[in-house]
């Protein structure tokens, strides 16, 4: 589904990703872990198509198509979704209007009619229930004044509405208390199927207790330096990142 080869990416001429490779197949859950500054958030932004990051070498393929130069909205239409570490506050647009617009623009791009209002409402209600979200919450301005937990829940709600093929969860656990973490993880697990895939990007192992990965990769200095199964995450949690640094620099 997602195939990244020899990816180099820079922001303002500073190279952050330095030859990264990863392959994700349908039905899989991958975790990418790494210390601060390793390039985790850059990786998720580059996959989602953020323009400030320039890909200088390498390719990103999605379902066999090279998307390296594709606009963010087109990537979204193809089924890529990124849950933001810091969702942007946008006063003046309600969550509902935002998600309706997102869904209908995606349908438009696929040559489909707009989703009928009653169908939309039904879907909103269903997905809100899944994430234990009050309908009143959805008429508030997008992320404005939301708590950390509310923001992340809202991200996963959007994911549930958009039903992406590939979901990248960028530090979704940060700022969440244990109850919110459970709700969010539960939501992700319920959306999981054999046709879609999830990439969890995280500093800590905590979230992986709830969203159990098939593969764990360690990102360090812009490269994947170690890959393994979920046990690797536990090892990182126990031993920290220093031993990886030593291994790499040795």
């Amino acid at each position: 589904m997602l195939k990244i080869e020899n990816l180099h990416a820079s922001v303002e001429d500073k190279e952050i990703l330095k030859g990264l490779g990863i392959e994700v197949k349908p039905g899989e859950v991958h975790a990418i872990m790494g210390p601060n500054g390793a390039g985790k958030s850059t990786l998720s932004s580059v996959i989602a198509g953020r323009e400030e990051f320039e890909v200088t070498e390498g390719t990103i393929e999605f379902n066999g198509e090279d998307i390296t130069e594709m606009e963010a909205d087109e990537r979204a239409h193809k089924g890529i979704f990124m849950s933001f570490q810091y969702p942007v506050e946008i006063p003046g647009i309600s969550v509902t209007n935002f998600i309706k617009t997102a869904i209908n623009e995606t349908r438009k791009a696929k040559g489909l009619e707009e989703m009928p209002a009653n169908e939309m409402l039904k879907k909103i209600k269903e997905k809100a229930a899944l994430l234990d979200i009050d309908m009143k919450f959805l008429s508030r301005s997008l992320n404005e004044g939301f708590s950390g937990g509310e923001k992340k829940r809202n991200e996963i709600f959007q994911m549930a509405m958009l039903e992406p093929k590939l979901a990248i969860l960028d530090e979704t656990d940060s700022g969440l208390d244990i109850d919110a973490l459970r709700i969010v993880a539960n939501g992700v697990n319920k959306l999981k199927s054999n046709d879609n895939a999830v990439v969890v990007i995280t500093h800590y192992q905590r979230l992986l207790d709830y969203i159990v990965p098939d593969y764990v990769h360690v990102l360090f200095d812009g490269k994947i330096v170690k890959s393994g199964t979920k046990e690797l995450a536990l090892e990182l949690e126990a031993k920290g990142y220093d031993w990886i640094k030593q291994e790499v620099t040795a």
Binding site: A72, D73, A76, P87, F98, T101, A102, A109
Partner: peptide, 11 residues
Amino acid sequence: ALFYLKSRGIP
């Protein structure tokens, strides 16, 4: 904010 909207499929 522009990127946030685009990443949700809004051109």
